[in-house]
């Protein structure tokens, strides 16, 4: 029994863990993704400084996962009453675990899709370096990846939205 007490956290803890993981994983993914794209962008700008604006647009694309993660984290905090005036509501362990599970899609899909999107954006930046008129196509390649982050965001949102205390 002694070892089980290690996991004997309150429901509130699990809910906050969910909020933390949503912001944390998706944020890490976006940071890495933007970093990958930024390296490529600096390379292209070193050849032609006039392309700064174009490549910056592409570099920003993997940033959305971090925002989606923040969004879900924020909604969880609202839900558990941490941002309101009345303080945190009581949450059972199973409710807390439910919130943790709801945060999983955007956290996990966020981190991997942002990294993948960063690579696609970097490739798009290379494309713009060679053919500046093809910016739109580079953007679409990166946006294809983002679809799955959008879907994960949607599922996370719908799951959290449906819970009541």
């Amino acid at each position: 029994m002694e070892s089980l007490t290690l996991f004997n956290f309150s429901g509130q803890f699990y809910a906050l863990l969910g909020a933390a993981l949503a912001a944390l994983l998706a944020g890490i993914g976006s940071a890495i993704g933007i970093g990958i794209a930024g390296e490529a962008a600096a390379g292209v700008v070193s050849e032609d400084p006039n392309k700064f604006g174009q490549v910056l647009v592409l570099q920003a694309l993997p940033g959305t996962q971090g925002i989606y993660g923040l969004l879900i984290a924020f909604i969880i905090l609202l839900k558990v009453g941490l941002l309101g005036g009345d303080g945190m509501v009581d949450i059972t362990v199973s409710q807390g675990a439910y919130i943790l599970a709801s945060a999983a899609p955007i956290g996990l899909v966020g981190i991997f899709s942002a990294i993948a999107q960063g690579k696609a954006a970097a490739a798009g930046i290379m494309l713009v370096g060679k053919k500046p008129s093809e910016l739109a196509k580079g953007m679409i390649f990166a946006a294809m990846v983002e679809t799955y982050a959008v879907l994960a965001l949607l599922i996370s949102f719908l799951m959290i939205n449906s819970i009541t205390f």
């Binding site: 959305t64 989606y68 969004l71 679809t147 959008v150 879907l151 965001l153 949607l154 949102f157």
Partner: peptide
């Protein structure tokens, strides 16, 4: 995504 981006 119409919904998701609107929510964002």
């Amino acid at each position: 995504r119409l919904l998701a981006l609107g929510l964002a």
